[in-house]
């Protein structure tokens, strides 16, 4: 399948898709919390329609979905480089979001459930999680190096 899609179109599609996902989640939660009515049901259908339409046009037709879900062995060198960079950036975002949500939850429920604070030592718990997030990818790196026998120092 030859043809081109501009980077701007691709970005717009991804943003719309994420917007559809976020809107569907919010509408669903509001509907579950307050009770469903015709307006909320319509909003949910609209959000899901945006989600599905942009998924097909932006992720499937352009090959973006295939790119990020194909085994490394089946990607060419440029695709490997690209997905590596994408994974590196998304790992940062997921880590920041997860830590942010955990920190928020800890503040909200710190006197009932101790999620992060380790008996009130908030900075220690958070520091340990940040250290883990920063170091965790050394684990697979070390395992991969072990598979390749030698690790060159320097």
């Amino acid at each position: 399948m030859e043809g081109t899609v501009t980077g701007t179109t691709l970005r717009r599609g991804v943003v719309l898709n994420y917007g559809g996902l976020a809107a569907a989640t919010v509408v669903f939660l509001v509907g579950e919390y307050r009770g469903w009515d015709l307006g909320l049901a319509t909003a949910l259908v609209a959000a899901l329609s945006v989600l599905v339409a942009t998924f097909v046009t932006t992720f499937v037709r352009t090959g973006l979905w295939r790119l990020v879900h194909t085994a490394v062995a089946n990607l060419d060198e440029r695709e490997v480089e690209w997905t590596h960079e994408a994974l590196r950036r998304s790992y940062r975002v997921i880590t920041a979001l997860t830590l942010g949500v955990l920190a928020l939850l800890s503040f909200l429920v710190r006197f009932s459930v101790d999620l992060l604070t380790f008996r009130g030592h908030f900075s220690l718990g958070l520091a340990l999680l940040i250290a883990l997030a920063y170091l965790v990818n050394t684990l697979p790196a070390a395992w991969l190096a072990a598979r390749r026998r030698d690790w060159i120092v320097g």
């Binding site: 081109t4 060198e77 440029r78």
Partner: peptide, 20 residues
Amino acid sequence: VNHQTVGYLEREEYNPSLDL
């Protein structure tokens, strides 16, 4: 390689490995 990679090479937006 993927045909998109050929496009990137032609537009000089990607440097190939020695093997490629």
